[in-house]
Design a protein around this nucleic acid. Structure first.
Lengths: 207, 207
DNA sequence: CGAAAATTTGACATGACTCAACTGGAGTGG
DNA sequence: CCACTCCAGTTGAGTCATGTCAAATTTTCG
């Protein structure tokens, strides 16, 4: 399996990054050797540079993407051009516009890499095929989404019950890595406040 | 199949409400006759009165609940006792505290019936067994949760990008039935605003 | 009918936004 | 190495959306 270039490399099958992925799968389901190799055969490796887009709104979301290394943000744009960060993604997270992927209609969301990011991807056809060949994968994705759903619910709740300051403090606790890696204005957007207001909050905290 | 009482009736197996449920299942997966009867055998019918709780926070969420008729709200309480409505549920929706159900730990959420509500339920053990006997059900629940997840995401987005007034107008459009059935203060809570402010919004609109 | 619950109203407070100006790096090029 | 620009972050003044609290009113329902 040979790739042309460090940048934008793309390859299929068993690969250096596949090992840890299969190990991660074991947290959810148990696969036979054969099933593992079917899974591997459907997955694709890819690297993105900082700033590159995994998905742009208007395009159809062709892959579900598992982040091996790096980080991304999912965001969308209002009619007036303002951006809203919906979520961040880091190692061991899945990203993608589920609705667009399921219905193969244009996506509302953008997914952009914040660092050089290595991912594993699967496209719609291969995933459908994978579900057929390895039904346990239905369970795997059910479990993943279930977890993501619970997280989202908790987040909505917090938006309602906590002040911007408390939300920021919680964010710092939960994603300490992010504080380093992500520009502040994106964090503000994720928290649902303006960059200016986040700035004053930070000042308050440090005093 | 005989039930003791109209209130709090509980029964198992094929039942008047089971037919429409199986029809609803067909929107997502195709089952053989035999599989259908296995599914039916795991499900339980139940009715709740207005005000009754399907789940109380602190208890373990023992069932996933499909609403045949009626409506519910899912909410939780802050330390200071204030309530936050996380979601409403009506006909053809599933409700339950997924996290509590999955891990069989105490729930954070309360689920309360807003009307007399007829439901179909399945408990954890039966669902595990059902997944084993009818693996297609994994797919079914994956699809359901996927949809719910997309909805939640859209909701978060709206909370960030829309004013309280616009959120209310959208709510009226999307859930016209709710406006009739649900007390205003719960809608306010769902929208993340106070009941007083919702009241002034409504006044504005009607002018 | 009467009591409790839900809604409305108004005065006032405040959290968060807007806008515009300023600061301070991190390139970039001469 | 300096001057320049560009981008992120900070600051402050003024404003607006929304919250708080308390009282008045309406609706619901036993």
């Amino acid at each position: 399996m040979i790739t042309n270039s460090v940048f934008n490399m793309r390859s299929r099958g068993i690969f250096a990054t596949m090992e840890p992925f299969l190990k991660y799968l074991k947290n959810y389901i148990t696969l036979t050797e054969q099933e593992q190799s079917i899974v591997s055969s459907k997955l694709t490796n890819r690297s993105y540079l900082k700033g590159q887009y995994i998905l742009q709104s208007g395009d159809v979301c062709r892959h579900q993407t598992y982040i091996v290394k790096g980080s991304v943000r999912t965001f969308c744009q209002d009619d007036d051009g303002s951006e809203h960060v919906i979520s961040f993604g880091i190692e061991k997270w899945w990203v993608g516009d589920l609705e667009s992927f399921a219905s193969q209609t244009p996506a509302d969301f953008n997914i952009q890499c914040l660092d050089k990011t290595d991912v594993i991807q699967i496209n719609r056809m291969d995933l459908d095929e994978l579900y057929r060949q390895v039904p346990k994968m239905e369970r795997f994705f059910r479990l993943i989404i279930q977890k993501a759903y619970s997280n989202l619910q908790r987040r909505i709740l917090r938006n309602y019950s906590l002040s911007a300051k408390d939300r920021y403090l919680l964010f710092c606790e939960e994603y300490p890595e992010m504080i380093q890696r992500v520009p502040q204005y994106m964090i503000a957007s994720y928290l649902g406040i303006t960059k200016e207001f986040l700035s004053t909050i930070r000042k308050q905290i440090s005093l």
